Simulated scan of single mutants.
Amino acid sequence: MADSDPDHVLVPTLGRPREDEALAYALETFPDADVTLLTVVTPLDAPLSEGSVLERSEVRTDQARDSATELLESVPESTAADRVRIETVEGRPGNVVPRYASEEGFDHVVMYGSGSGPGSGSTGFVRRFLGRGIAATVVERTTRPVTVLE
């Protein structure tokens, strides 16, 4: 592995479509790196909290962990399981991801940015209206290199 290749790659997931592409990209692009699939559960008091608003935190955390496991199983690479670990945290993604990447010593972050183009769903309008998405916030707040897939 070259000196510039990361040893530890963070792939945050927020329960959005196409996040499997970010995981597959990380595994393919950095074949010697350990990968952490970080599932972020937005707290109930957060504005624009995503889905499952009335469920208790433990239930939502379990659902997020199950989704991450399904996401990992969807990646065709048979050796992925021994290189990927799943972690779950609660918080606002724009705050949690940069802090987690720094505190846990990750070398690189790979995430799906779900732009405002076709197929991005209703959140594209919200992002255009507010002027930024979670990926842009992560890029701005982290000191680690970030690859954003659109």
Rank of each mutant, 00 (worst) to 15 (best):
residue 58 E to A: 13
residue 98 P to V: 03
residue 69 T to L: 11
residue 46 A to L: 07
residue 44 L to N: 15
residue 78 S to D: 11
residue 99 R to V: 06
residue 51 G to Q: 07
residue 96 V to Q: 10
residue 68 A to Y: 07
residue 98 P to N: 10
residue 78 S to L: 00
residue 90 E to C: 05
residue 75 V to P: 01
residue 51 G to N: 13
residue 60 R to G: 07
residue 93 P to F: 00
residue 41 V to Q: 04
residue 98 P to A: 10
residue 84 V to N: 00
residue 71 L to H: 02
residue 47 P to T: 07
residue 63 Q to Y: 04
residue 96 V to A: 12
residue 47 P to Y: 02
residue 56 R to A: 14
residue 70 E to Y: 12
residue 89 V to E: 14
residue 95 N to I: 05
residue 61 T to M: 14
residue 90 E to W: 03
residue 83 R to Q: 04
residue 59 V to Q: 02
residue 92 R to G: 08
residue 82 D to F: 11
residue 97 V to C: 06
residue 89 V to I: 07
residue 87 E to Y: 05
residue 94 G to M: 03
residue 88 T to G: 04
residue 43 P to L: 08
residue 75 V to R: 04
residue 47 P to E: 03
residue 52 S to G: 15
residue 47 P to H: 09
residue 91 G to K: 01
residue 71 L to Q: 01
residue 63 Q to C: 11
residue 51 G to M: 09
residue 43 P to R: 00
residue 73 E to K: 11
residue 81 A to I: 11
residue 63 Q to E: 13
residue 57 S to F: 11
residue 72 L to T: 08
residue 49 S to H: 14
residue 90 E to S: 00
residue 80 A to H: 05
residue 51 G to C: 12
residue 52 S to E: 09
residue 65 R to L: 09
residue 65 R to I: 13
residue 79 T to A: 08
residue 43 P to E: 02
residue 77 E to K: 04
residue 87 E to A: 11
residue 85 R to M: 09
residue 64 A to I: 10
residue 46 A to M: 04
residue 84 V to Q: 02
residue 68 A to R: 03
residue 79 T to V: 10
residue 43 P to A: 01
residue 80 A to C: 05
residue 44 L to G: 15
residue 97 V to L: 01
residue 56 R to N: 14
residue 91 G to Q: 02
residue 71 L to D: 08
residue 94 G to H: 08
residue 85 R to P: 00
residue 55 E to N: 13
residue 87 E to S: 09
residue 99 R to L: 04
residue 65 R to N: 10
residue 50 E to C: 00
residue 49 S to A: 13
residue 68 A to K: 04
residue 87 E to I: 11
residue 45 D to N: 08
residue 58 E to W: 05
residue 96 V to L: 09
residue 51 G to I: 10
residue 42 T to R: 10
residue 42 T to F: 03
residue 76 P to C: 02
residue 84 V to W: 01
residue 64 A to T: 08
residue 46 A to T: 03
residue 77 E to A: 10
residue 99 R to C: 04
residue 70 E to Q: 15
residue 66 D to P: 09
residue 42 T to P: 06
residue 98 P to L: 13
residue 42 T to M: 11
residue 92 R to P: 01
residue 59 V to A: 08
residue 45 D to C: 09
residue 44 L to W: 03
residue 68 A to V: 05
residue 52 S to D: 13
residue 62 D to T: 12
residue 47 P to C: 07
residue 97 V to N: 00
residue 73 E to C: 09
residue 87 E to Q: 11
residue 53 V to N: 13
residue 65 R to W: 05
residue 48 L to Y: 15
residue 80 A to N: 05
residue 80 A to S: 08
residue 84 V to E: 07
residue 73 E to V: 12
residue 88 T to M: 06
residue 89 V to F: 01
residue 59 V to C: 02
residue 54 L to Q: 13
residue 44 L to T: 15
residue 99 R to G: 04
residue 94 G to Q: 05
residue 69 T to I: 14
residue 74 S to R: 07
residue 89 V to L: 01
residue 96 V to I: 14
residue 73 E to N: 13
residue 53 V to S: 14
residue 97 V to I: 14
residue 51 G to R: 08
residue 56 R to E: 15
residue 99 R to D: 05
residue 89 V to S: 07
residue 86 I to P: 08
residue 68 A to N: 08
residue 92 R to S: 04
residue 48 L to H: 15
residue 67 S to A: 15
residue 46 A to V: 06
residue 91 G to Y: 03
residue 59 V to E: 06
